[in-house]
Simulated scan of single mutants.
Amino acid sequence: MTMSARVTSAFWMSAYVRRVFVEGAFAAVVRRGSEEAGAIFVIVDRLDGTADLYSQAPQSAFGDQRPRDRLFMRVMEAAERPDLSKRIESELRFDPDLWLVEIEERTGRSFLETIDPDKL
């Protein structure tokens, strides 16, 4: 059985930022994490005072199957900035090697492959 190597977080992030720009939105890496395997969080700023937060779906959600690409799940929707900041601070205490990218997209497009956390 051959397992394909997963791309590094740094490589994935670089490709993701390019994709966001190609789609006509703006992206900025707010925090650089571990180059090899840092967890990735994405903030989608709707430019109306609210934002959505996405995190990588936990590997335990896939059982023996390993997805080909990173999958994400929305963990906060239309959140106010103070609430979003508290959540990010909490995540940073748990994992100081995480990546954080923020995109500006009025309609809330995340450009991520997502799963429904209720189906985990």
Rank of each mutant, 00 (worst) to 15 (best):
65 Q>F: 09
74 R>H: 00
40 I>T: 05
54 Y>E: 04
42 V>F: 01
39 A>L: 14
35 E>N: 13
118 D>T: 10
11 F>Y: 07
3 M>G: 11
86 K>S: 14
71 L>A: 13
33 G>P: 08
12 W>Q: 06
104 E>M: 10
85 S>H: 07
80 E>Q: 11
25 A>M: 04
18 R>P: 00
45 D>V: 06
74 R>V: 04
50 T>I: 03
83 D>W: 00
118 D>R: 15
89 E>V: 07
82 P>V: 02
13 M>Y: 01
110 S>D: 04
106 R>F: 06
83 D>G: 11
100 L>V: 10
42 V>Q: 04
90 S>A: 15
50 T>A: 00
119 K>Y: 06
20 V>N: 03
107 T>V: 13
111 F>R: 03
6 R>P: 05
10 A>W: 01
62 F>P: 02
5 A>V: 08
86 K>N: 15
120 L>F: 09
97 D>I: 01
4 S>F: 07
75 V>P: 04
63 G>C: 01
108 G>P: 08
72 F>Y: 13
22 V>N: 09
95 D>E: 08
40 I>K: 10
45 D>E: 07
2 T>G: 08
14 S>L: 07
109 R>K: 15
103 I>M: 05
106 R>H: 11
17 V>C: 11
89 E>Y: 03
32 R>D: 07
32 R>K: 13
64 D>N: 13
117 P>L: 00
1 M>W: 08
33 G>H: 04
93 R>D: 14
35 E>I: 10
103 I>Q: 06
37 A>G: 11
1 M>L: 12
74 R>Q: 11
38 G>A: 04
58 P>T: 08
71 L>K: 15
